[in-house]
Design a protein around this nucleic acid. Structure first.
Lengths: 343, 343
DNA sequence: CCGGATTCTGAAAACGTTTACGTAAATAAA
DNA sequence: TTTATTTACGTAAACGTTTTCAGAATCCGG
């Protein structure tokens, strides 16, 4: 019933606990013969070291914490995939915490993690977060932090992001290139830098073609999807001149499709749509959605690698280690220009 | 730098470590006055108990392990959501492990978890798993296990599933009802009971309408999506008489769409499709996909609750605690009967 | 054969908690 | 008053591991 421990192995072998421990760690100060004996018995009895005793003594848990808004967003699911891959390769474990984009929860989670349960933290900031003293306090607690995707520039640590500004510019330029004149921007909460960056790209792309910005065309989303669809519908009704939509987050792209379907606006004939998304199935949409696709898996893996390097070398994470990965614009039918109807 | 511990609190307050510990646990053997003093200082110094020392001493980690094939499957993402919800409510933490449907990894993960890192395990079996001695060994290690979705009947523990047989029967009956004569079944690896159950439902629904089973119409999927699309294309080419597809797992439903699009088979005119899926966006598909949708969130939450109850009461999990939740057939256009074409 | 290096092993402290046990003072029961 | 009982706190052991320190045994050059 009780799992076997070092003491039992030691007794069985007529050795001391210390020697057994060292043998299992392949220490050079134990003879090859005893190492073999120890290993054999350990295997036979299915010995597994007690992770907590080990963590307590070594003062490191071989565990990283991943704090994200939600796991149902496909971007984060893919990122977790990358994180788990990097962690496993380094023998680390992954604790998952979901903030549901709620500031209070984020604070509670971070506070709790300061108890030393994890050696480092990967974080994508909740959209509801404004005050960041809880994140700052991680520094004095000595827990390394790496941001990914949703970052806060004020914190001096590494950040792994995509080229959000460039992506926003590209998406908007693409819509302009296919003939859109009135382009709405559906964005995530505006406290997040990714939203700001993508929006600036949108604005600059418009300006580059001599379009004046129109604040009425900018719609910040909420955390409630049904509500978002309503808001988008209202916007489309209020401004029937809208002929292009740039949704800078997956949820809102899906919301835009629903709104268009409900209002009977044809895509791409009446309205062209481009959206950030990592769903493989967008190519099955009606019509297939033109996307900005982020290298989500790589983002997760890179962020984890940076964090793990810092953890292993017991060095702080430096802002200079930040990485910006490139997103990709994948044109599909939702932004196709009219073709001679192939009857 | 170093986090504050009980000793420092005790010194500062002129108390013993024991009293401080007890005060923080709101023990009845410490006076209200000292409790208040202790709590005040603890709050001031941002004291967080060391989770590993606590776990070691109490022999419980307040952590559960979740072992799943992949997190990019939307079903599992939703399940994690439910699990995290239940865990958080009970003050538990969630460790995530991905098997990628690989038997070796599953074994390694389970073996590792026997080190006591978790108080209990939630598992959805890898499709590559046949031998289950690693799972049996959890019993003697005294670690409670609860299966969800992909279960193994041989292990005597609680299982949280959906009515797979009934769903398979329903999906097939639906296809028959809308006029299909040759219905293919795309299923997950056949070692898994969910695949078997769904398949039996398929067979029985066919038999009920006097259709003989045709093994050539049954296609077991692989773990490689691109390969799956190929296999489906081959099947459709080989058997042009197929006019209905039942995909008993999300990946294969998406694969079927791709295959149909590539071969120019129109859905639902030429082939009608129903698939298991938890993607919200199936309603945006071309055409919207008729689905069997599982209550994924509830499955995760229920499984976690059962596990946590057992963990807290230090009782074994019993097979009698198993729960079967109902899936839902959501008819959409992919199985619509021909309507008078509305020019 | 001695001194010193090298190789292997053991005793014991340490990590930060929790908790069984002991004890002194205060209170209640006799 | 004396004797239980309760209250509030301290002492110290325990959880299982890692690691410092020291010691015993072996080897080797002189």
């Amino acid at each position: 019933m009780k799992p076997v421990n070092l003491k039992q192995l030691a007794e069985e072998l007529g050795l001391s606990i210390a020697t057994v421990s060292r043998a299992l760690q392949d220490s050079h100060e134990v003879s090859a013969a005893t190492k073999e004996r120890v290993r054999a018995l350990a295997a036979e009895l299915h010995y597994e070291p007690n992770a907590y005793a080990s963590s307590l003594r070594r003062n490191q848990s071989k565990t990283i914490g991943v704090v994200i808004p939600k796991v149902t967003n496909h971007f984060f699911a893919l990122a977790i995939n990358g994180i788990e891959e990097a962690a496993r390769q380094s023998g680390y474990h992954v604790l998952i915490y979901l903030t549901h984009d709620d500031y209070e929860r984020e604070v509670a989670i971070i506070q709790h993690l300061k108890g030393g349960r994890v050696d480092g933290i990967l974080l994508s900031v909740a959209s509801g977060t404004e005050d960041i003293t809880h994140l700052e306090s991680l520094r004095e607690a000595g827990i390394p932090l790496v941001f990914f995707d949703r970052v806060r520039a004020e914190i001096a640590t590494a950040k792994v992001t995509t080229n959000d500004y460039e992506s926003g510019r590209l998406a908007t330029a693409h819509l302009l290139a296919v003939g859109c004149q009135r382009i709405a921007h559906l964005l995530i909460s505006n406290t997040l830098s990714i939203g700001q960056n993508r929006h600036q790209g949108y604005l600059d792309a418009l300006a580059a073609q001599g379009h004046a910005p129109d604040p009425d065309l900018v719609l910040p989303g909420t955390t409630d999807n049904a509500r978002n669809v309503q808001l988008i519908e209202e916007l489309l009704r209020r401004r029937p001149d809208i002929d292009g939509i740039f949704a800078s987050v997956e949820r809102l792209a899906v919301g835009a499709y629903h709104a268009c379907h409900r209002l009977g606006r044809r895509i791409p004939e009446d309205v062209k749509v481009v959206g950030f998304s990592n769903l493989e199935s967008v190519s099955l949409f009606d019509p297939p959605l033109t996307t900005i696709t982020q290298p989500a898996h790589d983002i997760g893996r890179e962020a984890a690698r940076i964090l793990l390097r810092a953890v292993e070398k017991k060095r702080p994470v430096l802002p200079t280690q930040s990485v910006v990965l490139a997103s990709e614009l994948v044109p599909r039918r939702s932004t196709a220009v009219a073709v001679s109807s192939p009857l």
